[in-house]
Design a protein around this nucleic acid. Structure first.
Lengths: 117, 117
DNA sequence: GTATTATACCTTGAACCAATAGGTAATAAC
DNA sequence: GTTATTACCTATTGGTTCAAGGTATAATAC
């Protein structure tokens, strides 16, 4: 029903944002969690339990590739977008935009459709 | 993975569209299925297996109320939005708009975005 | 006159995905 | 030396869309 942190309409949004952010520069999971909060101005706040599984699924699908990099004794796993990932991002942005336009139109008093039954 | 009919990003959209359409006038389930197709210009096409459960859930929650009306020997179940439903619609539109702005900003802008405080 | 389509309602099962709540381990701060 | 922060991870739950069924009447086609 009502989500405590994020509202509905979140289907596919984590994947979309992650791909979009990684398109600009390589990042690691923990960094992505905060970057998403920052870039959406707290409108979207994803837990690590959301981000990591998405990263692993995207890598398994060949949309991302990773490299391990030790920093200050800790190990970070940096992700970058593959060509397949870029393509996937493009498709996601496309469908997201289309759906958005459709719903926006429907919300704003949509009576451009004259349907009678 | 890939949906055959509708893409991702559909979470909560059926409920939003149904409430929005019923706000203007009472409709019945089968009519809503076609109205949604029409108002979104085929961008969203919901099956009856999606619409009916949402209608029942919304009525159970007190957001809709129904009346049975015989038309041409068949029985139609017409739904209207209750005050609680109007409130729910308002909240949904609000969160949908906010999320939209956030994701749009993230998609277009690089690191940060237009309006600071 | 019967076969097919359209109308109109419904439920069940599977699949997907975000969210919560855990768990491990190292460094930094106090 | 206890807590907070960094940084990784998994398992389970719950909610929701979707496909694929099922029932029944009215209109149309052949």
């Amino acid at each position: 029903m009502t989500r405590s942190t994020n509202p509905n309409f979140m289907n596919g949004v984590p994947e979309l944002l992650i791909l979009r952010l990684l398109k600009d520069r390589e990042m690691y999971g923990y960094e992505l969690v905060q970057a998403i909060r920052a870039v959406t101005r707290e409108a979207v706040s994803l837990g690590e339990g959301v981000v990591y599984p998405v990263l692993h699924a995207l890598e398994k699908d060949g949309a991302l590739k990773s490299r391990r990099k030790p920093v200050n004794g800790r190990t970070r796993v940096y992700y970058t977008v593959t060509p397949a990932g870029q393509k996937r991002l493009g498709a996601l942005v496309n469908t997201w935009t289309k759906l958005n336009d459709a719903v926006s139109g429907a919300l704003q008093g949509g009576s451009y459709a004259a349907h009678t039954i």
